[in-house]
Amino acid sequence: MPRSNKLHPFTILAIAVAVVTMTTAASQWWLSCAVIGLCFLITGWAGHTKKLALLSGAMLLPTFLSLLLIHGLIPRVPSPAVAQWGPLRVTVHGLEVALSLGLRTAVLVVVGLLCGLLIDKHQLVAAIDLSPVPPQVGYLLAATLFLLPQMTEKQRQIGEAQTLRNAGIGTGLTGWFQRVRLRAVPLVLTSMQDAQDRAVHLSARGFPATGVRTRLREVPDTSVQRGIRWAAVICAVLGPVMILAPTWFGIN
């Protein structure tokens, strides 16, 4: 069992929300870097470092490039240039703004992805089922999380079948559209037929059930974790207010 499974999923989520809101409010590059570094330490402990690095890199690289295009190359404030290629010039101020906004997004991405890696999907579904939210939410989350890999696999099999019958092997944009069509149409049709069949079975069993139910899976929770959750929620709400209040009232 992964070590992070001892934590209630809501504890992880509450801490993540508190960290993201307070780091965003503080907007200090060293704090953002420290949070990102800490996330990588935690993910190393959980054994997902490579996955986190790849996923966050894939998301943050286009974001940084986009911010550099918007703020770095188009300065809104006169500032000395760091680099210049013909009419294009990167200014100090533009670079600072792009990096600051990029770090803000990076904290959200890295902390969010870390949550996704640490939280066990079964535990999350069970925790939502046991919480007071409508029972449909738990079903929808569970169905989506377990349907995603199934549909991805189904799409791969459809692709293989189309290749075997020599269909959708064209090149260029037309070929790409043809491949997408040959994969998407059977995928959507079979998935919707399955969903319709499932609806009949669920209706026959009185879904969504009301009242108290017994779940075989228990979600580990302690009074300490409940306390941490409350503290994290308070920090998430009041932390940014306390950090930003001096700026709003012109104290700084």
Partner: peptide
């Protein structure tokens, strides 16, 4: 809570399609 079961079972398929 208003949605019928046939719609509830359709939503996960839609979510998976959006994501994929």
């Amino acid at each position: 809570p208003d949605l019928p079961v046939s719609t509830l079972t359709l939503i996960p398929v839609a979510l998976a399609l959006n994501i994929i």
